[in-house]
């Protein structure tokens, strides 16, 4: 997992609420068995004028000039600032993958859907909650100044924009993983002995959760 420490980049607004994961990456692109290749289809239905399908040459498709990320001023954007309840809908981890593979490192919003929020951290993609007022001010500034950049200092837990520092919350565990680029599995396996003991005790107390009766099942 890529580390996230201090990052500064071009900001782009996504000024609407309830941006759902079907919008972020439409389902026809979920058929891949790999973790990469989603960036070109980020916001596919909004971004292109035609309907996207896996395998289509995206460089030849007509772009929707009205879509915000297609505007020349937002090319190379790496921090998104969005409306509340960002990432609602399905559990597809393809959503943070697509945002990340497009070039975003972080998204700032007044609130996030839980699963998206959680999935993001697992990939070194940082979702940051600021207040609705702070987000509104950021979007106004992005709209007002071409090339507006935002800095994120994760160790200090602050978003820095236009000289203003805005603190944000993150759990100690998530921060530790993000700053060091650690994935959860290796950390969890440090507790393997504890997990085994818990499992043994549970098996004795609740054997019916450990059914291995596969007589009627096809395998």
């Amino acid at each position: 997992m890529e580390k996230f420490v201090v990052f500064k980049g071009l900001a782009a607004p996504m000024d609407r609420e309830n941006v759902d994961t079907d919008a972020i990456i439409p389902k026809q692109f979920l058929k891949s068995i790999h973790k990469t290749g989603y960036g070109e289809n980020l916001f596919d239905a909004w971004r292109y004028k035609d309907t996207g399908e896996p395998g289509k040459d995206n460089s030849k498709r007509p772009l929707n000039p009205d879509f915000i990320l297609n505007q020349p001023r937002y090319q190379g954007a790496s921090i998104m600032v969005a409306g509340k309840n960002f990432g609602c809908g399905s559990s597809r981890e393809h959503a943070p993958w697509a945002l990340q593979q497009y070039g975003f490192r972080a998204v700032i919003a007044p609130s996030f859907a839980d699963i998206f929020f959680n999935n993001s951290y697992k990939n070194g993609f940082l979702p940051i909650v600021l207040t609705a007022d702070q987000v509104r001010r950021l979007i106004d500034k992005i709209n007002g100044f071409v090339g507006f950049q935002i800095e994120i200092d994760l160790p200090r837990q602050v978003v820095i924009a236009d000289g203003e520092e805005m603190p944000f919350e993150i759990s100690g565990h998530r921060k530790y993983c993000m700053v060091n680029g650690f994935d959860d599995i290796s950390l969890t396996l440090l507790q393997a002995e504890k997990i085994r003991k818990f499992e043994e005790a549970r098996k004795i107390r609740h054997p019916y959760y450990f059914s291995t009766n596969i007589a009627n099942a096809s395998l």
């Binding site: 981890e93 393809h94 999935n119 697992k122 565990h173 959860d184 969890t188 396996l189």
Partner: peptide, 19 residues
Amino acid sequence: GIGTSEVEHVMATQCLVQR
């Protein structure tokens, strides 16, 4: 519901990291 990284995590550890 969980994401794919968590699917892998549960497969590998039988646990979910959760608050």
